[in-house]
Amino acid sequence: MRRYRKTAFLFLAPFLTVFIAFYLAPVGYALYLSLFVKKRIGIGPPKEVFGGLANYIRAVQDTDFLNGLKNMFVFGVVQVPIMLGLAILLALLLHQSRGPFMKACRTAFFMPYGIPTAIGAMVWGYLYSANLSPFNQILKAWHQGTIDFLSPAIVLFSIANIVTWTWTGYNMITLFAALQNIPQDLYEAARVDGAKTWDIVRRIQIPLLLPTLQILFIFSIIGTSQLFTEAFVLRPLGYLADNITPNLYLYLTAARDANYSYAGALAILLALLIFVISGPFLRRVASR
């Protein structure tokens, strides 16, 4: 038994080394940083002194941070179902059809995923700019008012649109692959029993997609909590709130305001929150 364990560790070593160096160590460092506060005496560099949980107490009272979390929830509740719904629909359609056109569609839907997030966001930045936007030029041609896609009331949805554009194809391909795995004889049996296409979708395909969907759902929720690049790239194009996403808020706290201790506390809190939210889902998937 003992010998096997050694061998197991040997095989795990490459993964564990990287995991510890680039995952656990930074988390530990953030935790360590978060326990310090700045003490200033006069003008000049501050001293970092041990502050216990002071940064955590500040964070739970920080309305900007809490509103950032609220934005994250709104985003998750609105964007994730739309994206996954679209992905299911496209996967089912692609699965039904054959032919070169469908193959072309499959590639086209998947393509945004292959474009680096920052580049995608830049292109959308052009599409969103008030006067240059082709959407607004179409609206103008129809004598409609233009939309300011970057205005504070709308910008969260503009970001949601970019995320949907990027990730629907990825989710679609994953679901499509899961559909391919459904044994052919299940369909045949259903047909023999007189099932229509809609019955097959409802009683065979969707139930068998559920495990994949659950995994995608968890990934999407975690992805939502990590939203950063789109907001960061759009930011110089107009006014985007510091706390439009919690991750942008903690980035600015660190890199702009040079308050790394407080940013560390925010990061730890955010991670805990995501752990609490995604934990039950993960347990359910694991128990299958």
Partner: peptide, 12 residues
Amino acid sequence: TIPDFTAEFYNA
């Protein structure tokens, strides 16, 4: 009221 240093500003 166009943000400066943007494509939009230079275009205008």
